[in-house]
């Protein structure tokens, strides 16, 4: 299962997963702690994202389309200018709260930048590499192990679910409302058992080949220092922008 992975040849793709995870994490932290009034800083961050997207050869359209995942939160933000308190401004005949406008901007800007950064990570790193990266970042084995099986099972579930859904649809039934949940759940129980038994066999086969809870890291080795330096450019640049914006303001 590689929902968002874009198989391309690029410098960003070639970076080790652990340095990319760390860079995105630090970048997001810088974005979140930036005061909402520092509009120039947010413009700078957007530029950085565009730069990385260019380096990674990820098309802007692809990014923007998938960024709509945060739409519910943007909608939450839309009401703020109307419900906010304090000083108000008039715009196109609407009375809007200044504080509410900043609140909305805050959610929109930070949410969007965070989503874009994560999307870039997902686009340039396969799921398996992400797990490897987390493992190298000292994520507990229990978690990476659950993740590994989760990936394997998602494929199994999707396969089984597709078959069951086709069978259900061909009988003219497509439950999607809460009160139809019972019928849906019955199918889900069966799906669960089927998938478990298949996954159990997969697991036994893995054990038989010497699996002991940790995926062998295979070809890749730990990220060289140079990669850490290169990838730190993103959060360092972001931090620079944040400081510069604060100083200018």
């Amino acid at each position: 299962m590689e929902p968002l992975y874009l198989a391309r040849e690029s410098r960003v793709h070639r970076l080790s997963p652990e340095v990319k995870i760390a860079a995105v994490l630090l970048f997001t932290i810088v974005v979140v702690v930036t005061p909402r009034e520092d509009l120039t800083a947010f413009a700078g961050y957007t530029l950085l994202i565009a730069l990385v997207a260019g380096l990674a050869r990820v098309p802007a359209g692809w990014l923007l389309k998938r960024a709509t995942i945060e739409l519910p939160f943007v909608l939450l933000a839309v009401v703020l200018p109307f419900t906010g308190h304090g000083e108000r401004v008039d715009w196109l005949g609407l009375s809007l709260s200044v504080d509410g406008l900043y609140g909305a901007w805050n959610i929109f800007a930070k949410g969007t930048l965070g989503v874009l950064a994560s999307l870039l990570l997902a686009a340039t790193t396969s799921m398996r590499d992400l797990i490897l990266g987390l493992d190298r970042l000292r994520c507990p084995t229990v978690i990476t192990q659950i993740m590994t099986f989760m990936l394997r099972y998602i494929d199994v579930l999707i396969d089984d679910a597709r078959r069951m859904r086709i069978a259900r649809l061909s009988r003219g039934y497509d439950p999607r409302f809460l009160w139809q949940v019972k019928a849906f759940a019955v199918g889900v129980g069966a799906l669960f058992l089927r998938s478990y038994e298949r996954g159990e066999r997969v697991y036994l086969a893995m054990l038989s080949r010497g699996y002991s809870g940790r995926m062998p890291s295979g070809s890749g080795s730990k990220a060289p220092a140079a990669e850490w330096v290169v990838s730190s450019a993103l959060p360092v640049a972001a931090a620079g922008i944040a400081v510069a914006a604060a100083v200018l303001a």
């Binding site: 893995m206 080949r209 010497g210 699996y211 002991s212 062998p216 890291s217 295979g218």
Partner: peptide, 9 residues
């Protein structure tokens, strides 16, 4: 990679 899994373990 699949063939390598066993010996890598």
């Amino acid at each position: 990679e699949d063939v390598a899994f066993g010996p890598a373990n």
